[in-house]
Amino acid sequence: MKPPLLEITDLSVAYQTDTGPVMALRGANLVARAGEVIGIVGESGCGKSTLAAAVMNLLPATAKVTGGAVRFLGQDILTLAPQAQRALRGTAMAMIFQDPMTAFNPVLTIGDHLVDFQHQSRAPYRAKLARARDQLALVGLSDPDVILRRYPHQLSGGMRQRVAIAAALLMNPQVLVADEPTTALDVTTEAQILHLLRNLRQTYQGTIVVISHHLGVVAELCDRVYVMYAGQVVEQAMVDDLFHAARHPYTRALLACDPASFPNLTPVLPTIPGRLPDLRDPPKGCSFAPRCALRSARCTVAPPWAQVSPSHGVLCHEVGA
């Protein structure tokens, strides 16, 4: 069997801080095959952006990979020479960032950016510019020639995010990582960008990894979802299973808190009691246990990963197996 396009095994990442290392990722696993759209959900601080950065090899200098591997087509990219890592970025894998307002350099035009981003191609300048123009048209920008000459601040947030998507697709990457692609946008623009990303699925052959704290976005776009909590993947399921047959108590609690799921107005929005564990000193047992309604004596021991079906796994003593 062909190796999966992207495979993250047992990845652990710690950020060095003045008060000691913060274990942002603790043995995260993820598999993505060509053509799949993967969702990663979880609340702020659960490690989903660290995971995205690790895939792109863009971890900040304070972050250290303490274990595990990120394999692209079977090859561990974390052990590649910096030059080889760089060669993958932009060509084999590309990223769409959260904040389109600051994602572009204010003194360069959109055209400058889009041509620069094709630096690994040997095509002449004019060909690159033409390619940039085609991509802009593809993401639904009506006047690509004008956009190419514009500076980032002259475009709206939605237009900039379209440009960001066009930029990410310039070199036909096999892996596209979208880190909170709609979080910084207003609701109307968000709907347009979601629509665009969904249309993209028809033509794009590679894998898309969508990171979001927004369950609606994940439901709209993804085939398969990973739910993260405190640096670990706690549940993995097909999107329908996740929304209709979630097993992990955290996933259930998260779904119960989604305002979109309430048919009527409620006087008080439900929340998950308690808070995230301190990742400088992560709990020995199940990290969700202190906030969990189902916890029992065995939750003080780290739970095993259990497959409840071939496509549905969960990290829990109580509901697994």
């Binding site: 060509t91 960032f97 600051t102 350099n105 930029a167």
Partner: peptide
């Protein structure tokens, strides 16, 4: 530390180019 520099790096631009141009 700005986002647009991270973008430039995410597209694999050589560090020289990132420092001098971006």
């Amino acid at each position: 530390g700005a986002n647009h520099v991270r973008t430039a790096r995410a597209f694999g631009l050589p560090e020289r180019r990132v420092v001098l141009r971006y």
